[in-house]
């Protein structure tokens, strides 16, 4: 079955070292199984999409990787070692950031906090520090608004600043929780192109969660598909197939490919529980 075999799928890069290994992780909260025996690995410089609908367990999985949620079973290894509480090797960009326009903070200040935000004491102004911040702002194409108040920036601009904040500590792995959810199409594409560049150039592994995979198809090396707490991992061609997803969802699923895009629909055998469904037409359960 995919979810056990997927962890051992051969890779296209020969030289990848495993940055992240999620090993048979299960989480249940409040008596409900959120994650069920999830396993996959992410190699250096790989762009991995974590795909699943709302409630599939994406955020919980990211929290487990960040060490904010204790897995009931299984373990998470970072570069082959168990994670420590404070680590700079994982960067994180949360799902929704609500920055107050009244907060007296510039984009530059937030990026600076990415360098040493967890340390105590006041930061001393230094030329190296400033240079690092400038360099990072440039890398995410955020120089234009480097000195603007962060709460006044648009959603896409704030996202860039947060990515810079995460990257400045030179992590080996960058986690992004639904970065595309609140962006318009163009900003979303720009962010994806930016992330792809970072992954390739700095060999930083990227694990990005989304409920829609089409925007990621051009850049994604691998996909981790979550449904009902279970996961299938591998390349897009290995995972996004009718038989694999049927096993994952527990009922028949068709995968349609149209103009290079992928659409996942419930198959004809799908029996709707909902009596109000007019004539048993296949309801689309998930479009990816």
């Amino acid at each position: 079955m995919p979810r056990t075999s997927a962890a051992r799928t051969p890779r296209d890069h020969a030289d990848t070292a495993e940055v992240l290994e999620v090993d048979h992780v299960s989480v249940s909260l409040g008596g409900r199984q959120i994650l069920d025996n999830v396993s996959f690995t992410v190699g250096a410089g790989e762009f991995t999409g974590l795909i699943g609908s709302n409630g599939a367990g994406k955020t919980t999985l990211l929290r487990v990787i960040l060490g904010l949620q204790h897995p009931g079973a299984g373990r998470v290894l970072l570069s082959g070692r168990a994670r420590r509480r404070r680590t700079a090797s994982v960067g994180y960009v949360p799902q929704k950031v609500l920055l107050d326009p009244d907060t007296p903070m510039r984009a530059r200040d937030l990026v600076g906090l990415g360098l040493d935000g967890q340390r105590f004491g006041m930061p001393l102004p230094s030329a190296t520090r400033r240079a690092k911040v400038d360099e990072m702002l440039k890398a995410v194409d955020a120089e234009r608004f480097a000195d603007a108040r962060i709460g006044n920036l648009s959603g896409g601009e704030q996202q860039r600043v947060l990515i810079a904040h995460a990257l400045i500590a030179r992590p080996r792995l960058l986690l992004l929780d639904e970065p595309l959810a609140n962006l318009d199409l163009r900003s979303g594409q720009e962010i994806i192109a930016l992330l792809h560049g970072i992954a390739v150039e700095h060999r930083i592994a990227i694990l990005l969660s989304a409920h829609e995979m089409n925007a990621l198809l051009p850049v994604m090396n691998r996909v981790v598909y979550l449904a009902g707490g279970r996961a299938a991992a591998g390349t897009t061609d290995e995972v996004v197939r009718s038989d694999v997803l049927t096993g994952l969802y527990g009922h028949h699923v068709d995968v349609l490919r149209v103009h290079g895009r992928v659409i996942v629909v419930a198959g004809p055998q799908f029996e709707s529980d909902d009596a109000s469904e007019p004539d048993g037409h296949d309801p689309i359960i998930h479009v990816s």
Binding site: R85, V90, Y92, P94, L110, Q118, F120, P123, L162
Partner: peptide, 18 residues
Amino acid sequence: YRPLLLASTVPDVAEARG
């Protein structure tokens, strides 16, 4: 100063950094 500033503006990120 620094952790407090971080935790006060972006609590999720601060938590992820320990």
